[in-house]
């Protein structure tokens, strides 16, 4: 899932300052699950924006709506009417959703969230990064633990010299990914895998090659 966090209210107030009618648009997918931009958060932000605006002596009208998925044009199309009545749109989707809206509508679209990473849920209320979207997955040889997303230095062949007691030297509350990989391979009885040298990574499949695209010939129209 794509994780995100709400931007500071002050920044959002700056965006919407010139506008009187705002469409505050949530998304019922990833950002709902990570409690950043679902119906509930839309409601909270709407209240907060209204109060903050009122405090500065200004009245702002906010229309709340939450789409099934803001990164699909068909869903985005559903809000044409609402966008038409609004002066600006504040999107509570991830960056994909914001752009989908911006591409479709001529109105100003502002992000309410900072999109953070692709991650998983550790437990209620805690998410951590699991995938960097490098385009060439190594998990098959690293015991199911990604050294790209979870090692601060993206090392491909074992930990750096700073790894101590299983903890990353850069962020001490993060476990060393290579330590985890070793433990996991040990548990699986596949420590020989660790001895295999992983060649230098070709970053072309990652963002290094510019914006990426997937085309499924059989599906694409």
């Amino acid at each position: 899932m794509i994780t995100a966090e709400r931007k500071p209210l002050e920044e959002l107030l700056g965006y919407i300052a010139p506008y009187g009618r705002i469409l505050l648009l949530g998304c019922n997918e990833c950002v709902t699950v990570c409690a950043a931009g679902g119906r509930k958060e839309v409601g909270l932000l709407a209240s907060a924006l209204k109060m903050a605006a009122r405090k500065s002596g200004k009245d702002v009208e906010i229309v709340e709506h939450t789409l099934e998925r803001q990164c699909d044009p068909e869903y985005v199309e559903e809000v044409a009417g609402l966008v038409g009545q609004a002066d600006a749109v504040v999107s509570m989707a991830c960056g994909c959703g914001v752009q989908q809206m911006a591409m479709r509508y001529a109105k100003p679209v502002f992000p309410a969230l900072n999109t953070r990473f692709m991650g998983g849920s550790e437990r209620q209320g805690v998410w951590d990064e699991r995938c960097a979207g490098c385009g060439n997955c190594l998990l098959g040889v690293t015991g199911g633990i990604c050294p790209i997303a979870r090692c601060a230095k993206r090392l491909m062949n074992g930990p750096c010299g700073g790894s101590a007691n299983g903890v990353c030297e850069i962020t001490p509350d993060v476990p060393c990914a290579w330590h985890l990989i070793w433990e996991r391979l040990e548990a699986l009885g596949q420590t020989q895998q660790y001895m295999e040298i992983i060649p230098a990574k070709d970053w072309k499949t990652a963002q290094g090659g510019g914006p990426r695209k997937i085309i499924r010939e059989d599906l694409a129209e």
């Binding site: 509930k40 409601g43 909270l44 209240s47 907060a48 109060m51």
Partner: peptide, 11 residues
């Protein structure tokens, strides 16, 4: 009690 109820009360 939802955070929304708390904010709404102030609103």
């Amino acid at each position: 009690v939802d955070a929304k109820h708390l904010l709404t009360a102030f609103e």
